[in-house]
Amino acid sequence: MITTAINQARSVTRTALLGLRQGAGAMSLSVGIIALSLTALGAFALLLLQLSRLADAWNREMLVVAFLDPTVTAELAEPVRQRARSVDGVLDARFVSSHGARARLREALGERAHVLDGMDDDVIPAAVEVELLPGSPAEQSERVAAALKGEPLVVEVAWGAEELGRLGAVLGILRLAGGLLGALIALVTILVISNTLKLTLLARRDEVQIMVLVGASPAFVRAPFVIEGALQGLSGGTLAGGCLLGLHSVLALQVEQALARAFGSVSLGGPPLGVVVALMGLGAGLGILGGLVGVTRFAGREEA
């Protein structure tokens, strides 16, 4: 039984490869269209992935900063610090003096630190910096900020909610657009593959009839075409993965610089191998689906 199935699988695969060779022209066109579609989807997914990572990183690193009068000392600021620590979801709260903040800024400015020369020592206010627990939602920052705004020594509270909110909104739109684009590309891929296979089936109608005549089961007749669909999809996905790796190597630096201008320091990381593997899997999966749709539609016509 198992040997029979293995032998049949071997025959079916051989038939599929013969079919691919015979219909090389149409198949190449189909693979090209799939590759283009999946490259667009992959590039979009990659952009979305990077922006999501950026948002997560911001969320993780997000501080709520309560600015105090420059003359406030650590002792005077202690009630503010304690108040911050008493709010749920706060990991730590620390006092940064005006002097300390200036020193930190000087260090951050590096070679350009001279811009601070001549300024008063207390030009940068003292502050209590509140660090939230990792993965805290954006609303948590608002709750901490609200609690600190009521403290008498607090002049102003900043927590970057606006930027995060804007990024969140952009991400929401991009995710929706990505979902629509993904659905559209999936549909296009399935249609391209199923129509290519339908043409192949029409061209090889006699062959199908002969297979039925000599006692082939419906599964045996259909399997080569589903395999052809899977191979088309996999080839398209692999090509798309290659294109994406190429685009990444050429454009990563420019994209990093553009994102850095908008959002600060950003790293796109190494080659997107995960996305490439996902595109190959997606291509093969859509190919199988396209193959099944193609042979089912063809069978429907034949029976009619």
Binding site: T4, N7, Q8, R10, S11, M211, V214, G215, A216
Partner: peptide, 19 residues
């Protein structure tokens, strides 16, 4: 487009006989 051998073999391929 297939050889005489391949055409005849088709009747046995569907039955899953060994090569």
């Amino acid at each position: 487009t297939r050889t005489a051998e391949q055409n005849v073999a088709l009747a046995l391929d569907v039955q899953g006989l060994s090569p």
